[in-house]
Design a protein around this nucleic acid. Sequence first.
DNA 1: CTGGGCCATGAATATTTATGCTAAATAGCA
DNA 2: TGCTATTTAGCATAAATATTCATGGCCCAG
Lengths: 317, 317
Amino acid sequence: MAQSPYTDDQLILAARLYFIDDLPQAQIGKLVNVSQSKISRMLALARERGLVRVTVPDYDPRNGALEKDLKDSLGVSAVVIRSAAGLKIQDLRQTLGYFAASVVSSWIAPRSVVAIAGGRTMQALVEQMKPAGSTEGVRVVQAMGNIDSTSGAYDAAELGRQMASAWKGTFLTLNTPAILPDADVCRQLLGLEQIRNILTCLADANVALVGIGTLENSVFLERKVLGKRDIAALREAGAVGEILGRFYNAAGRECKTPLRERVVSLPLEELRRIPQVTAVVSGSDRSSALSAAIRGGLVKSLVIDERGAASLLGKPL
Amino acid sequence: MAQSPYTDDQLILAARLYFIDDLPQAQIGKLVNVSQSKISRMLALARERGLVRVTVPDYDPRNGALEKDLKDSLGVSAVVIRSAAGLKIQDLRQTLGYFAASVVSSWIAPRSVVAIAGGRTMQALVEQMKPAGSTEGVRVVQAMGNIDSTSGAYDAAELGRQMASAWKGTFLTLNTPAILPDADVCRQLLGLEQIRNILTCLADANVALVGIGTLENSVFLERKVLGKRDIAALREAGAVGEILGRFYNAAGRECKTPLRERVVSLPLEELRRIPQVTAVVSGSDRSSALSAAIRGGLVKSLVIDERGAASLLGKPL
DNA sequence: CTGGGCCATGAATATTTATGCTAAATAGCA
DNA sequence: TGCTATTTAGCATAAATATTCATGGCCCAG
């Protein structure tokens, strides 16, 4: 270990002048005959060394009351993140990701298998996640094929990779489109060993992190993988929401449309068997899709913002 | 009292994000949906309200060892201020003033009479001084006339005014030149009631704060009130230092030169009777003048920087 | 000794933070 | 209700702080 370039005494002097007496760094520099840059570095060092301690009362980013309400009335265990009023959706996502990250990270036990989906909220979350304890033998598995060939920053493949790297674990990618033009191709793909393996792996996941799509607001429509008439057909068939590219009805059962046979992702029946399936959702426009998923047992826990939670409970907040 | 515009909770959130998570204010602003300016103000408020507390270990600006040495070997009680190596003289003065101010301020008891001289170090000190406790009935008295008619920022008159105003006390000014062209004029001035009163007052001072001049480095020479030949004459007469415009020899006795009769200031014999006479000195070029003053009992205590103290002790530091 | 690598340093500069100012909101008052 | 006084917010910008970069000192291996 290198010996320190400064004595604690010097650091304390600088720190006192700065934090207690509120002198600007340049002035402190004059008093101790060094440059402002150095004072800046000394202050940083003083904090690192713990000479300067800043104490701030705890802030609880979670809304415990809403969490309890959700548990009581819907039976889901939820992480409800407080959110400022009037936030634009992207900032809301950021907030959610920022504050939920530590909780969600703590769920990732050593040797666990994590099934992961894509989505912007998911992206905001994963971006902030980092291992809390041991990272031993974590496997991250992409839970759904790729939406199209342009690999976006918030696709499952990318997020999975990111998370796996943070945990120094392995990442298993589902190397196929999510939705195929016809059922035949899909069946063929599903026959491939590479893909079968991944799906098996997924079925054994300990934790699944998924988003919730709606008919009004679907990545598939947005990215033109499905057309308006596909959506219309789905609506016809009673679809109210989507998880991993699979649409389900108000009871939380997968809709029996031809589309069902064209999707490469963890089937909802298998998802249901995963012990912890968490929907990561922000905003209040997904209430009905979300409540159907909960009702159908597709989703067992929730990471959501205050307003989303409130609207899910039918309370206008 | 106005009700606060922010809840503690909001402040705590902002403060945590800033101080604990080290997010920049702009980013925090996004998360809580306000402008960066507001976050800045919220943080300031959080500190005011004591929600954020910054603790820094105490720094002792005094060099106790040197203080003890001075007491032991010269019998003066000193305040020795630590100083960084290589400081330019003006920054050294600043340092001294900054750190000595609180000690010296604490000497000013309610109802005390303070005799004050000028000088740059004195200026640096007075600038930083502020009352520690009660300020009741403090009188500040200018201990020496004005050097010339250009009133500088570090003349006794100015410093006295400044200090008196900080203590909300009264200031008595010595409205005359310090050094007069001849003894006659001087005598006449000394006869004026206004001036006699001040001098009486000075003689009753509880505390005197004075500087030390040398023959090499004298304000009077600098401001051309004395000429080189005056200085030469003084040297001839054995002068080694100057206090309040009065030159003294190595024994600390006032030199008997004609100049003596031309000065308007507290006479050294009377200075000697003031219970606390403190020399405020920075730099190491005044050692001999200083030690003569101490020897002669002109000065009973010292406010000085580390190097000055060391050189006074003959230790090269 | 004599390079060569390493590190600390300060000047220059990029980034972040604080603040003066204007406009909008809010409250008090007639 | 309409008016003024006061507060508060955000923009623009000044001020302060962090960081990059070039340099020079120092230590160690040759």
